[in-house]
Design a binder for these strands. Structure first.
Length: 458
DNA sequence: CACTGGAGCCAC
DNA sequence: AAACGTGGCTCCAGTG
C-alpha cells in the first residue's frame, strides 16, 4: 500500500535544496541496509512471556467477571457484553452505577481512558486497567513482534517519506515505540531484544537534541548559553522556578515533569493554564529529597489552591518569555514571515508549505532538523562500518538515537567513531550547528532491557 | 465482509 | 480565539 502525505504539497514550485534531497536519498539506502540486517529476537523468551501474560489476562478476566459490576454489565448488554469494550464500560459505570464522568471526548462520549478511570478508585476498575495494560503488551508488542519475526530476526521498516516534518517513521512492527516507562511491561518486551553471539547492544543517544536544535534555530543567546554549558540545565532551572525550590534541591522526578509539562510545551506553543493543570496533577505524587511532600512544600510557600498555583505558573511563563527574549520576539516574526510567504525552509533545506498552525510553525523547524542530525550520523556511521569491514551493525534508529549490535572486540572503536561523527563531523557538516552536541552511550550485554550508561571519552 | 474513524496507548 | 508536536497499532462501533 502506498501512503501519501495529505497535508503538505511536496510538489510545489519552491526550489528544494538538492542537499536536502540527497540526505533522504542516502538515508533511504542506509536504512534499507539496516532493515535487511535486522535485529535478533529471543523467540523462546518471547513465547514464554506471551504465555505468562496470556495466563494473567485469563486470570484477571475471570476475577472481573466474578463481580457485581459485571452482573450489571450483563444485565445491560446481555450476550453482547464485551469486557474489551470501553464504550460499554462507560455506559455501565456512568449510566447504570451512577459514577460522575470526569470528562468527555471530542464526540461527546464519556472519557474512559486510564487517567479518567483511575480517579474512580473502584477495585473493579483498577483490575480492569491492569488487564488492559497487559492486553496492550500482548496484542501490540508480543504478538506484533512474533508476527514479524523471520528466523529469529526482526526487520522493521524505516520510512522517510511519510512524516510532515521530514522525520522518520517505523512500522511492521514499529520499533520506535517499544515500552520503557512501565518497568513491568518494558521488561516483558525489551528482554526479548538480544545481541548476536559475541555481541552487545549499544545505543548512542543525542543528549537534549531538540533543545540544542531550538537554540540553533532561534539563535537565542540564553538558549545558546544553556546548550553550550554542560553545567547548565534548563529543565532543572525551570523546575526550580515552577516548584519554588533551590536549584540544587530539585529532585530528578520534579525535573522530569518540569521538562515534559513546562519547558517543551512552552517552546511548542502551549500556555500557562495547560502547563499548570498538567503539573498540578502530579503534585500529590511528588516529594522533596528530605521526604517533605510537594503539597506541604508549596503550602509553606503560600500556594494552597490550584488557582494560586496557576497564577504562579503564569508568572513563570512570563519569566520564561523574558528570559529567552530573542526567542520570544523571534517566534512572532517567524509566524508573520510564514503568513507572507506561505512556506518556510528548514535549516537542512527542506521546504514546508501548505496550511500550518502557529504551533506547527514552532515545532516543525525543530523536530525535522533534529532528526536530520541523527540521519546524517547514521549514514556516516554505517558507511564507516562497511568500509572497515566491522562485524558490528546498526540495527535501528529512534529519532535521536542509533541502536547497534556491536561485536565485543569492536566496542571502543565503534563508540569512538559514533561519538566523533555525532559531534565533530556533524558540526562540520552544517554551519548552523552553533552549539556543541552531546552523546549519551548505553550498553546492554544480554538484552535491551538491561541497558546501562557506558562511559566514553568524549 | 470490507472499510473507516474514534479512542486509546506506546514511543520520541 | 486558542492553547505542545510527530508517529504506529489495536480494538470497537458504525456504515455500506
Amino acid at each position: 500500500m502506498v501512503k501519501l502525505i495529505a497535508s503538505t504539497d511536496k510538489c510545489s514550485v519552491i526550489p528544494v535544496d538538492y542537499r536536502a534531497y540527497k540526505l533522504l536519498h542516502d538515508g533511504v539506502l542506509e536504512l534499507s541496509r539496516v532493515e535487511s540486517v535486522g535485529m535478533r529476537i529471543d523467540v523462546a523468551r518471547l513465547k514464554e512471556n506471551r504465555k505468562v501474560v496470556e495466563n494473567r489476562i485469563v486470570e484477571l478476566e475471570s476475577e472481573l467477571k466474578n463481580t457485581d459490576v459485571w452482573s450489571t454489565w450483563r444485565k445491560v448488554y446481555g450476550e453482547k457484553a464485551n469486557l474489551g469494550s470501553r464504550y460499554q464500560l462507560g455506559k455501565v459505570l456512568f449510566g447504570e452505577l451512577g459514577y460522575e464522568p470526569v470528562g468527555f471526548t471530542g464526540t461527546g462520549r464519556v472519557k474512559v481512558d486510564e487517567k479518567a478511570l483511575s480517579l474512580l478508585e473502584i477495585p473493579f476498575v483498577q483490575k480492569y486497567l491492569e488487564m488492559e495494560k497487559l492486553k496492550k503488551a500482548l496484542s501490540t508488542y508480543i504478538r506484533g513482534i512474533e508476527r514479524e519475526v523471520v528466523d529469529g530476526y526482526l526487520h522493521p521498516v524505516f520510512n522517510l517519506h511519510l512524516v510532515k516534518t521530514y522525520r522518520s517513521s517505523c512500522e511492521m512492527p514499529n520499533f520506535q515505540n517499544i515500552p520503557i516507562r512501565d518497568e513491568t511491561v518494558g521488561r516483558l518486551i525489551r528482554t526479548c531484544f538480544v545481541p548476536r553471539e559475541g555481541h552487545v547492544l549499544i545505543e548512542c543517544d543525542y543528549g537534549a537534541l531538540e533543545f540544542r536544535i531550538a537554540a540553533c534555530f532561534w539563535k537565542d543567546s540564553k538558549m545558546v548559553e544553556y546548550a553550550r554549558d554542560s553545567t547548565k540545565d534548563i529543565h532543572r532551572d525551570m523546575a526550580s522556578k515552577c516548584f519554588l525550590l533551590p536549584v540544587e534541591e530539585v529532585p530528578k522526578q520534579v525535573r522530569f515533569y518540569a521538562k515534559n509539562q513546562f519547558v517543551f510545551p512552552q517552546l511548542y506553543g502551549s500556555y500557562y493554564v495547560s502547563c499548570a493543570k498538567n503539573l498540578w496533577k502530579f503534585v500529590p505524587d511528588l516529594s522533596l529529597s528530605d521526604g517533605t511532600s510537594m503539597e506541604e512544600h508549596l503550602r509553606k510557600n503560600g500556594i494552597v489552591s490550584y488557582n494560586q498555583f496557576e497564577e504562579h505558573i503564569k508568572d513563570v511563563e512570563n519569566y520564561f518569555n523574558s528570559f529567552f527574549r530573542e526567542w520570544s520576539r523571534g517566534k512572532e516574526e517567524w509566524v508573520a514571515n510564514y503568513f507572507r510567504r506561505g512556506y518556510f525552509k528548514m535549516m537542512t533545506g527542506f521546504v514546508c508549505s501548505g496550511v500550518m498552525s502557529k504551533n506547527e510553525l514552532y515545532n516543525w523547524p525543530i523536530q525535522g532538523p533534529a532528526f536530520h542530525c541523527l540521519l546524517f550520523s547514521l549514514i556516516r556511521l554505517n558507511r564507516f562500518l562497511r568500509k572497515h569491514s566491522f562485524r558490528s551493525v546498526i540495527i535501528g534508529q529512534i529519532h535521536d538515537s542509533i541502536v547497534a549490535d556491536v561485536h565485543r572486540d569492536e566496542i571502543s572503536d565503534f563508540v569512538n567513531e559514533a561519538v566523533r561523527i555525532m559531534t565533530d563531523e556533524l558540526s562540520r557538516k552544517w554551519d548552523w550547528v552553533i552549539v556543541p552536541m552531546a552523546v549519551e552511550v548505553e550498553i546492554a550485554e544480554n538484552n535491551w532491557f538491561e541497558k546501562r550508561p557506558y562511559a566514553h571519552g568524549k
